[in-house]
């Protein structure tokens, strides 16, 4: 216990004296939240659109006016279908709309031709959806729950919390251990009677607390800047974050005990945890759309489960997540055991 407290005390002094850590901990989340919050959006807006009007009637002009006054399209008049194809190939426009000569005469079955650049399928579908909304009178009475206005930042910003905490947690934990190896202080520590368990616990506890503070910091930013709803309780956020930190920081410890230099540790963290947490956790691509074997892989990422928790807590106001909570606890046990075994072998 005594040696654990000594390590903890020393680590707090390091944090107080190293300005880099303060920068990572406090400005990094703010910048990232703003960058990602604005950048990640799958709503196609201001799409350059070629428009060919063969009808040239009051009705068609009304349609064009409503298209161009919406935030979705920027209308470029074109003179032929060939021009639409040519300009799509050149990348000047993303889609083309052709209004047929009989547009104003046919009441119900007016057939509009739409040509869309399908090289980015998500963007293409989004554009199509927006165009359709101008024509098909809605017969399906739809109501979106939880995110009524379908604001994509409401969905993505909680995900950013998960990704950022994963990155910060893993990187600063592995930094704190590998730095001691590089500076040779670890060798000296290993000649003292300190056990690897109190060494590692003493080293990660301060960073666990910092990560917890960061969760609340990012939540605050998200509320202020993007008006993200936080419908669940903050206590539940605190408890679930703690559950998430155990497996995540354990991975950071394992990486750092197996790496000799900070560069190796950074690179390993990127490949093993950062990239999968962004691509496979459901942050960007839904886990349900992945092939079965990959879905199994995603279950071993703490971020996958924490993402469900954070989204449920923010958007749906759920406070209890027994399934995800137990899974995180299990993963925590698994990764902490790996961390203790690997550090026992390599550190000593």
């Amino acid at each position: 216990m005594n040696s654990f407290l000594s390590i903890l005390w020393k680590e707090i002094i390091h944090i107080k004296r190293e300005r880099r850590i303060a920068v990572i901990v406090f400005t990094f989340p703010l910048i990232m939240t703003i960058l990602y919050g604005y950048a990640i959006s799958f709503e196609p807006k201001n799409v350059p659109t070629g428009l060919l009007d063969f009808d040239n009637s009051t009705k068609s002009r009304e349609l064009i006016l409503s298209l161009s006054s919406s935030k979705y399209f920027i209308i470029h008049r074109v003179s032929s279908t060939d021009e639409i194809y040519r300009r799509i190939i050149q990348g000047e426009i993303k889609c083309g709309i052709v209004i047929p000569p009989d547009f104003s005469r046919k009441e119900k079955m007016a057939s509009i031709q739409v040509i869309i650049d399908g090289s980015d399928p998500n963007l293409g579908k989004g554009i199509l959806k927006n165009i359709q909304s101008f024509f098909i009178p809605s017969q399906v009475n739809t109501r979106f729950l939880f995110n009524q206005r379908m604001v994509s930042s409401n969905f993505y910003v909680p995900g950013i919390i998960v990704v950022l905490i994963t990155i910060i947690g893993v990187i600063i934990t592995s930094h704190s251990i590998v730095k001691e190896k590089e500076q040779g202080t670890f060798e000296l520590l290993s000649t003292t009677p300190v056990s690897s368990t109190s060494l590692i616990l003493g080293k990660i506890l301060p960073y666990a607390i910092i990560s917890l503070i960061d969760v609340f910091l990012i939540t605050g930013f998200a509320r202020l800047i993007f008006s993200i709803p936080v419908r669940g309780s903050l206590l539940s956020l605190f408890l679930n974050t703690s559950l998430f930190l155990l497996p995540t920081l354990s991975i950071g410890v394992t990486i750092s005990t197996l790496s000799k230099t900070e560069l190796t540790a950074l690179f390993a963290s990127f490949i093993i945890i950062t990239l999968p947490s962004i691509l496979l956790s459901g942050f960007v691509f839904p886990v349900e759309n992945m092939p079965g074997w990959l879905q199994i892989v995603t279950q071993f990422l703490p971020a996958t489960h924490f993402l469900k928790i954070v989204r449920g807590l923010f958007l749906k106001g759920i406070n209890f997540f027994p399934a995800e909570g137990f899974t995180l606890l299990g993963l925590g046990f698994l990764y902490a055991s790996i961390a203790i075994v690997s550090s026992g072998k390599r550190v000593k």
């Binding site: 020393k10 002094i13 390091h14 004296r17 190293e18 500076q183 040779g184 202080t185 060798e187 000296l188």
Partner: peptide
Amino acid sequence: VSQRFSLYQDL
């Protein structure tokens, strides 16, 4: 006492 100075420089 190791070859490299291995106390904490920022302490």
